[in-house]
Design a binder for these strands. Structure first.
Lengths: 152, 152
DNA sequence: TTTTTTCGTTTACATATGTAAACTTAACTC
DNA sequence: GAGTTAAGTTTACATATGTAAACGAAAAAA
């Protein structure tokens, strides 16, 4: 359901996006207020970031008198998922399970979260495979080291 | 178990690290070979990346005649976990469960992976909380929007 | 021992990013 | 209507990153 477009948002820009996602619609002033408090950024800094986000098409600027009302053109959940899934481009497919397991153990989860994960996992179980295919370039993962031999 | 040190490895550098992790020990030539194939990078490019990684202390260069044998000073699994967990600095704690659920549904998992995740989850279940605390700065997450009121 | 090859080190350079100040213009205040 | 605000737009500038070519020294080859 999520589009795989290159969501190129930098860390600093992400801070701005979060404010907009949170407020649904925000003025530069409001965004600056939040980030002045959280990051101690000057108004000018936030203005620059907003400008870049508008240029990148991540924020929409609706005129409202002399100023603009900013809204996000991308959904927060989708963006988060895009980023998290993008992460796996840098990891061997075989490692995903362990990596996700680590995230689970590191996280604080609610009973509801557990329930959701259990369901998701149960669902996934149906289509589990015997062995995940390594997707690494040869030489970038141990799987490729011993190719046409016996597996350990 | 993972140290939270600023593992500042860029995307390009990460490619190099993967080769070294894979080979355990590698020469510049070997690394170049892999990345010449995968990324079409010139030897000079790889040399630059190696140099930067050595300077950053992520690679160790052991002299071997006129050249060096490079080894990683950081463990791959730890690095992967550091990166993935670092991701959550940009997301509300309340969203972790859903985000992880999404990763699970997006991934291809083996029966063993499922088993591992089930265990991890079961373990986590013991310390599940009723409600995860929002950790966002005020104004960066809906949780903070309606503070001293009733929750929806 | 010249020549050539092989490594690593320096230098290069464009674009990206973090952080802002300066500038411009329209709106509000006196 | 002139001065002060409040917004957005331009310009600035250092450091980071992606990508390499140029350079220098040591090792291997001729």
């Amino acid at each position: 359901m999520l589009m795989e477009e290159k969501t190129n948002i930098t860390e600093a820009e992400w801070e701005v996006m979060r404010v907009v996602w949170s407020l649904h619609q925000a003025t530069s002033k409001e965004i600056s207020g939040v980030l002045q408090t959280k990051k101690n950024w000057k108004e000018a800094t936030v203005k620059t970031l907003i400008g870049r986000l508008v240029k990148k098409g991540m924020l929409n600027a609706k005129p409202d008198g002399k100023r603009y009302l900013y809204t996000a053109t991308i959904n927060e959940t989708d963006s988060v998922n895009a980023v998290t899934n993008g992460l796996f481009d840098f990891i061997c497919n075989k490692e995903r399970g362990k990596t996700i397991a680590n995230m689970i153990s590191e996280a604080t989860l609610s009973h509801d979260d557990i329930k959701l994960l259990e369901q998701t996992l149960a669902e996934k179980k149906k289509e589990a495979v015997d062995e995940v295919e390594c997707n690494c370039a040869p030489g970038q993962c141990k799987c490729n080291s011993h190719r046409h031999g016996h597996h350990h």
